[in-house]
Amino acid sequence: MSRNIFCRKHQKEMEGLNNPPMPGARGQDIYDNISKAAWDEWQSQQTMLINEKHLSLMDPSTRKYLQAQMAHFFNNEPFDKAEGYVPPEK
């Protein structure tokens, strides 16, 4: 059974996540306010950042950086994008 939430990213009612994506208050906030579609968009963006910037998730500063970028992304604020990325032509 799906649940609907008001998505902070897209500013409309959308299908919510099935479970919090991480423990703690941040995970609960995402579960309550971020849609499944917005979470999937962030996952793609995060993967591009990790790959293009050659980030190591073993480095605590990388995790801090990605969490800050995630907050910017979900709040519709400017966030870092992968330099040199060219989306495939349709």
Rank of each mutant, 00 (worst) to 15 (best):
M1G: 14
M1R: 06
M1F: 14
S2N: 13
I5Q: 05
I5A: 05
C7M: 05
K9E: 08
K9L: 13
Q11T: 02
K12Q: 15
K12C: 12
K12G: 07
E13N: 03
E15R: 12
G16I: 06
L17Y: 10
N18W: 14
P20T: 01
P21C: 03
M22S: 12
P23Q: 12
G24R: 05
G24T: 04
G24V: 08
A25R: 08
R26H: 09
G27P: 09
Q28G: 04
Q28T: 08
Q28H: 13
Q28W: 14
D29K: 05
D29Q: 08
I30V: 12
Y31P: 00
Y31R: 00
D32T: 06
N33I: 04
I34E: 08
S35Y: 06
K36E: 12
A37N: 12
D40E: 15
D40Q: 11
Q43I: 03
S44Q: 10
S44Y: 09
T47W: 10
M48I: 01
L49Q: 00
L49G: 00
I50Y: 06
N51L: 11
K53Y: 12
K53M: 14
H54F: 09
H54V: 02
H54K: 11
H54M: 09
S56Y: 12
M58I: 08
M58D: 15
D59Q: 06
D59W: 11
D59N: 14
S61W: 13
T62Q: 06
K64L: 13
K64A: 12
Q67Y: 07
Q67N: 11
Q69D: 06
A71D: 15
H72R: 09
F73A: 01
F74C: 03
N75Y: 11
N76H: 09
F79C: 00
F79P: 00
F79I: 00
D80M: 05
A82T: 01
A82R: 00
E83H: 03
E83A: 06
Y85T: 01
Y85V: 01
V86D: 07
V86F: 09
P87T: 04
P87C: 02
P88V: 05
P88L: 13
P88G: 07
